[in-house]
Design a protein around this nucleic acid. Structure first.
Length: 585
RNA sequence: GCCAGAAUAGCUCAGGGGUAGAGCAACUCUCUCGUAAAGAGUAGGUCGUCGGUUCGAAUCCGACUUUUGGCUCCA
């Protein structure tokens, strides 16, 4: 019986991908005999291999390497495994400095193995397919050339990495390539430009977002909803400054530990002011403004607080990673007895919020105490237990990241899956044992003792910018009616209907719908096309027929026609869809 | 920050050592139209910025800015 038969389909595919990496290395060495080879593992969608090459690669090289790989695959080369001694391996790779380094890092006592196919031998744990004929020459594609540091360390030499994608067959490869195209079509940067939602400006600073009127409308809807829900759920809103004197950041510890992530200070009146990278210290200032009693707790203070963080230039990415963004932040200050209830409540709230925006598939990640941590172990235990109980009570699927918490407290992160199955982290609920100490926060308990409250930091959407980017990609720009920047486009058939359409627009606006009549002198078909391209959910085409009968036929952005009756029933129907936040049109 | 690619009209893009092109959008005029593109015309660019090479640079070279993909997947 063949070993391979016992492998799961995933393991088999991984083996193929890893073997592909070796095939690619052979092709590259054939092209550049003096190349140094580093590592070449299988990854989620294929494989890569890192090389130190005598010259820079250009995109055209990929096609050449790809052809060579196909030849190698077709020539049916066996993958041969050999066990060798360390000295034999050292001799074999005497010209390959990276391989020698890897060899040294293999623990004593572990068997050293080589894999050979054709003209290529690699220091490798394996396993591999038996022969290149098990690989489908049409199942892979070299994707891009990238740079990577040797062993991922910035101080190490830079290597050339070639990424390839590989699948079981051509069909799977094509499906993957189609998916990539879909991802490209959904790209929030592209949609943001096409739908005129936001922009960034190099003259005015990278990573800083400008919300255009249509983007601002959507953001406004999100924020209004967010505020309303928070009031319903027992929160109060606070507003705090955008800058604070260094005292604040020294006390919070940010200047010690988070200095690199902060914008540099502005000097004024001989004091240094910093743009806030977080809202927490400000909320604590409000807490500490008066003496607090256990009767006051829990306190739940929320703020759409705009923060500024220095992100590495190379890390910036559309709305998903920016330098100025608005957190949907809140801090909960609770007594020890309230922790369990409070955590459960905030988790439920968070799930409801995510559901409202159309995210149904949600997974939790619990991060526990790392080795270096502040705060008494009992508090950590209480907090971690509360988080875990809440997740389990909600029946959420979850993973535990042991020791993965921040030094100041355990946390739950929630990740949603979008329309095409990608995971995004949005919500986070995080205990903080550090700041209450540093700011000496207290409350007076029943017994007259001054005690330390538990402080919980939480964001449901994460940041508005990032959330908006994720939403945009999730819906591919076609927002549900309640979020759409424009809900109804009124399209006159001819200019004899303009007055009527104008009147209709006014009436719909009085109903608080975002509606407008297209009174340009374009032809009707063009108006429909424009509304369609703008992904306006509902189009009312109004001509003599409608003016006479008072009955409307609604064109959905899907192209479907619907009979919604007269004006009153149209309004009623639209209200029911919008007010209930219905996702479908 | 580091490596590599990119930057041409509002947008999408072509071109390329001899001085700038298309489509769409904009503007003007004509058409008044029944569910995704009516016709004609006009205008629009220091070819990202700064420097260098050259008789001549948008084109070649360098720096900078912005942007894209990487820099997490471990023999």
């Amino acid at each position: 019986m063949n070993m391979a038969d016992k492998l799961s389909p995933e393991q088999k595919l991984e083996r193929k991908r890893h073997s592909m990496a070796h095939v690619m290395a052979e092709a590259v060495l054939d092209m550049f005999p003096t190349a140094q080879i580093a590592i070449g593992p299988a990854i989620d969608t294929g494989f890569y291999y890192d090389f130190d090459l005598p010259r820079q690669l250009v995109n055209d090289d990929l096609a050449v390497i790809e052809e060579k790989m196909k030849e190698i695959i077709k020539s049916d080369r066996k993958f041969v495994r050999t066990e060798v001694t360390r000295d034999e391996a050292r001799e074999k790779f005497k010209d390959q400095k990276y391989k020698l380094e890897l060899l040294e890092s293999i623990p004593e006592g572990e068997t050293v193995t080589l894999y050979n196919q054709g003209n290529f031998t690699d220091l490798c744990r394996g396993p591999h397919v038996e022969s290149t004929k098990k690989l489908d020459p049409r199942s892979f594609k070299l994707m891009n050339i990238a740079a990577a540091y040797w062993r991922g360390k910035e101080s190490n030499p830079m290597l050339t990495r070639i990424y390839g994608t590989a699948w079981n067959n051509k069909k799977d490869l094509d499906a993957y390539l189609t998916k990539l195209k879909d991802i490209e079509k959904r790209d929030h940067r592209k949609l943001g430009k096409e739908l005129d939602l936001f922009s960034m400006h190099e003259e005015a600073g990278p990573g800083l977002v400008y919300w255009h009127p249509k983007g601002a409308r959507i953001r406004g809807v999100i924020e209004d909803f967010w505020r309303k829900e928070h009031y319903k759920n027992g929160y109060e809103m606070v507003y705090t400054p955008h800058v604070g004197k260094s005292w604040l950041w020294e006390t919070s510890g940010h200047l010690d530990f988070y200095h690199d992530g902060m914008y540099p200070p502005m000097e004024m009146d001989k004091a240094d002011y910093y743009a806030k990278p977080m809202n927490c210290p400000f909320h604590i200032m409000i807490y500490n403004n008066t003496k607090r009693s256990y009767r006051d707790l829990p306190l739940r203070w929320a703020e759409l607080g705009t923060v500024y963080r220095y992100e590495k230039a190379g890390a910036l990415h559309g709305l998903l990673r920016v330098r100025g963004f608005t957190q949907d932040d809140a801090h909960l200050f609770v007594t020890p007895e309230q922790v369990d209830d409070e955590i459960l409540t905030v988790l439920k709230f968070s799930l409801n919020m995510l559901h409202s925006f159309g995210f149904q598939e949600i997974k939790a990640y619990l991060s526990t105490r790392p080795e270096k941590a502040v705060g008494e172990p009992e508090r950590w235990a209480t907090a971690t237990e509360a988080l875990k109980k809440a997740i389990e009570k909600e029946g959420l699927e979850y993973e535990v990241d042991e020791g993965g918490g921040a030094f100041y407290g355990p946390k739950i992160d929630l990740k949603i899956k979008d329309a095409i199955g990608r995971a995004w982290q949005l919500s986070t609920v995080q205990f903080d044992f550090n700041l209450p100490e540093r700011f000496n926060m207290t409350f007076t308990d029943k017994d007259g003792q001054e005690k330390r409250p538990y402080m919980i930091h939480r964001a449901l959407l994460g940041s508005i910018e990032r959330f908006f980017g994720v939403l945009l990609e999730h819906y591919a720009g076609a927002f549900p009616a309640w979020l759409a920047p424009e809900q109804v486009k009124i399209i006159p058939v001819g200019d004899n209907c303009f007055d009527y359409c104008k009147e209709l627009e006014g009436k719909l606006r009085m109903e608080e719908f975002r509606a407008s009549a297209d009174l340009s002198d374009d032809h009707m078909k063009v108006k429909i096309k424009n509304a369609q391209l703008n992904k306006v959910p509902y189009m009312l085409v109004v001509g003599e027929k409608e003016m006479e009968s008072g009955e409307f036929s609604v064109r959905l952005r899907t192209g479907k026609q619907q009979k919604w009756g007269d004006y009153d029933s149209f309004v009623k129907k639209l209200h029911s869809i919008v007010d209930s936040h219905q996702i479908e049109l």
